[in-house]
């Protein structure tokens, strides 16, 4: 009986232990209204933790040419968002565990797409390229098509 109780406790604890390293990644959700509204207008507001600050600075400096579209903002809004993104970037002092997102990334490399980072590629190396061109997914930028709670900073596996 005691053994059963112990076993239940173990099973229960394992069940509650949450995310294992190979089940996906969680980051602090964005808590900045302008970033959520303006970035989230066309795609999910991507986690700032997933790119280094140099990437966000470059991207926010050329919103008129944003992946084939003009995404210009008023200067004050643009500055506000750029500051938020840089402060929460992979290499920002306040970001916990950000190093995993820049692992393998050359110091001189300035990726503008999260999907260009070695981290993203490692995590998606088992996904066939054809999956991303599926009309229901459309683009690698459409994280939420497979990671259903990506807008909450949760990129879990097996959601698709």
């Amino acid at each position: 009986m005691k053994r059963l109780a112990l076993l239940s406790t173990i099973v229960f604890t394992l069940g509650l232990s949450g995310l294992r390293a190979d089940e996906g990644v969680k980051v602090s959700p964005i808590d900045h209204a302008a970033t959520l509204k303006e970035c989230g207008g066309c795609h999910i507001a991507f986690p700032p933790q997933m790119l280094p600050s140099r990437s966000w600075t470059k991207m926010m400096g050329d919103l008129a040419n944003h992946f084939g579209e003009n995404a210009a903002l008023d200067q004050a809004v643009q500055d506000d968002i750029a500051t938020y993104l840089a402060a929460h970037a992979a290499d920002a002092p306040a970001t916990k565990g950000g190093a995993r997102f820049t692992k393998g990334l050359g110091a001189d490399t300035v990726p503008l797409r999260i999907t260009e980072t070695p981290y993203w590629k490692r995590e998606h190396d088992e996904i066939a390229a054809s999956r991303f061109s599926d009309p229901k997914i459309k683009s690698k930028a459409n994280c939420i098509a497979c990671h259903r709670t990506a807008d909450k900073g949760e990129f879990l596996e097996g959601d698709e």
Binding site: H43, I44, K138, A141, N142
Partner: peptide, 11 residues
């Protein structure tokens, strides 16, 4: 225009 559209990123 009475139907929903979709951004190039799929939103």
């Amino acid at each position: 225009p009475t139907a929903a559209g979709e951004t190039r990123a799929g939103k």
